[in-house]
Design a protein around this nucleic acid. Structure first.
Length: 504
RNA sequence: GCCGCAUUCGUCUAGUGGUCCAGGACAUCUGCCUCUCACGCAGAAGAUCAUCAGUUCGACUCUGAUAUGCGGUACCA
């Protein structure tokens, strides 16, 4: 049984890169008929941000990434929040000490800081490891009895992993193959903090093991500490899960990790949902609020670092689940591309029914204090949706179906509206008043019998008519437009234009 | 500094030794459609496969160096 977990720490809004990690975990779990677990890694109490956990849950829910077990829904392997699991880590740290895989360390943070400075002055880097630990204050240098005495006296301490000297540790990564590192280069990581909480390194191994996680799919930033993790499994005598380290999501220009700053600067969200920072009050935009459709975000994210091996680009969640495979995850970081994101959204927007588009439009009409008949709104929505990428553009591109233009685009007027145009526009009114109000009749009377027969410039007349009705030279087929808006309204708009537009 | 990972069109990528003087998508440009703007359709341009060595009859594909980028180097995750 495949069991995977998404394990964010609730230190703020979920980054879009984190969303992708969750997505890949989800696709992998579903494809293999396995379980998807949400675990909250809140071992650093100083970095806790209220609302972050709820945000993570809501964001993934919006995207359709569902969990089988987790903080929000429970499950047989709970609790799923590390702070709630606090009592169980202690024994594992003790076990490692007992078996000689770890030791107590009493060095004060200031002492460690001083040590680092000292080394830095000599252009070296201090590392708490097999070479230096004998010179530090720990149960190895002090002796177990002295260590116990200090602990009994209430002196704060941490538990550090005791890396064996000079051994090669190989991590088998499903994406990168074997990655080998020598223990000489690795430091004796703190496993258990003086505040009684484990660090990520201890907690994630204990939790993954006790939750029977089979595959750890996480960001590349964990690759350097993966050898520690496999050593920990070895120290506990547990079988390690399979690892897959995902490439990073890079910023659109230049290099480097995608950050909140880039989003603000380049005008695209880096968070799935809008986030209101509880401390600073700062608001960061989200995909949802910007009008991205969840399926579009999922599809775009899936393809940022993975491909199905075919040329298919548009895939529903169900298709992604079928097609996903770890072998096709690319090794290198991917730059986020705003244009492609928009393209995906446009594609998915077109899949929306006219009714769905209409409901977006109706909400905007309401904001502008306009009420319109539902059937009419649906008709407009169906006619206009192909030119829309984001729902927010709806009002802007459709407003002339609901209200007469309040101004006429100067450039368009200058280009099309000649001084004699009021005569032709009056003629249009006459035609509308005399011929049957349907497409073919109007087309013939206007285009053939008037414009063509009189040798007029079709572009000028038709576009002037468009200026009169719409305000500028955009929009669908002119006669369809007139038919949609209605005879009286059209005539009124033309009259208003004749009175208002003055050219020399 | 040290360690690790990566490196194919502007971007995301296909490519697992000959079928690749490298295919697709987005973006760009041109044309068609047309009363306009979009959509759509057709086409164009765009990559000395980071560089240099090596292995091989043959390398984008294997090996090694170099360069560049990124990640890690916390009692953060």
């Amino acid at each position: 049984m495949v069991r995977v977990r998404f394990a964010p720490s609730p230190t703020g809004p979920l980054h879009i890169g984190g969303v992708r990690t969750a997505l890949y975990n989800y696709l992998f779990a579903r494809q293999n008929g396995g379980k998807m677990i949400l675990r909250i890694e809140d071992t650093d109490q100083t970095r806790f941000v209220p609302g972050a956990e709820q945000y993570i849950i809501e964001a993934l829910d919006w995207l359709g990434i569902q969990f089988d077990e987790g903080v929000h829904i429970g499950g047989p392997y709970g609790p799923y929040r590390q702070s709630d699991r606090k009592p169980m880590y202690r024994q594992y740290a003790d076990q490692l000490i007992r078996d000689g895989w770890a030791y107590y360390a009493f060095d004060k943070p200031e002492a460690l800081e001083a040590k680092r400075k000292e080394y830095e002055a000599e252009k070296k880097t201090f590392q708490y490891d097999c070479n230096t630990r004998s010179g530090m204050e720990n149960s190895l240098s002090l002796g177990m009895e002295e260590a116990q005495r200090r602990i009994d006296a209430g002196e704060p301490y941490v538990v550090r992993f005791k890396f064996p000297d000079n051994i090669d540790i190989t991590v088998h990564d499903l994406i990168r193959g074997d990655v080998t590192m020598n223990s000489r280069l690795l430091d004796d990581k703190v496993l258990f903090k003086s505040d009684g909480m484990p660090t990520y390194h201890l907690a994630n191994i204990v939790d993954d093991h006790t939750m029977e996680i089979t595959h750890v799919i996480r960001g590349e930033e964990w690759l350097p500490s993966a050898p520690l993790h496999v050593m920990l499994y070895k120290a506990f005598g547990w079988e390690a899960p399979q690892f897959a380290h995902l490439p990073l999501l890079l910023k659109p220009e230049g290099n480097g990790k995608l950050s909140k700053r880039d989003g603000d600067r380049l005008g695209f969200p880096v968070f799935p949902l809008e986030w209101h920072d509880p401390k600073s009050g700062e608001i960061s935009s989200g995909y949802r609020e910007k009008g991205y459709l969840p399926q579009a975000v999922v599809n775009m994210l899936a393809l940022l670092g993975w491909n199905p091996g075919t040329e298919q680009e548009i895939m529903s969640m169900d298709e992604l689940i079928k097609l996903f495979n770890i072998e096709h995850i690319s090794k290198n970081g991917a730059k986020f591309n705003l244009d492609k994101a928009k393209w995906f959204n446009h594609e998915y927007f077109q899949k929306l029914s006219d009714e769905e588009v209409a409901s977006y439009l109706e909400a905007q009409l309401k904001e502008h204090g306009i009420s319109a008949e539902h059937g009419y709104v649906v008709k407009v929505a169906g006619m206009m949706k192909e030119r829309i990428t984001f729902p927010s553009e709806l009002w802007e591109t459709c407003c002339y179906f609901f209200q007469a233009p309040t101004e006429y685009n100067e450039k368009d007027v200058a280009k099309r509206w000649t001084p004699d145009m009021h005569i032709h526009m009056q003629k249009v009114i006459d035609i509308l008043n005399t011929v049957p109000f349907e497409h073919d009749a109007i087309h013939k009377a206007l285009l053939d019998d008037y414009i063509a027969a009189n040798g007029l410039n079709t572009g000028k007349v038709m576009n002037s008519l468009r200026i009169a009705v719409v305000g500028r030279t955009v929009g669908p087929d002119m006669i369809t437009l007139i038919l949609t808006i209605g005879k009286e309204e059209t005539i009124q708009r033309i009259k208003h234009a004749i009175e208002t537009i003055k050219v020399n």
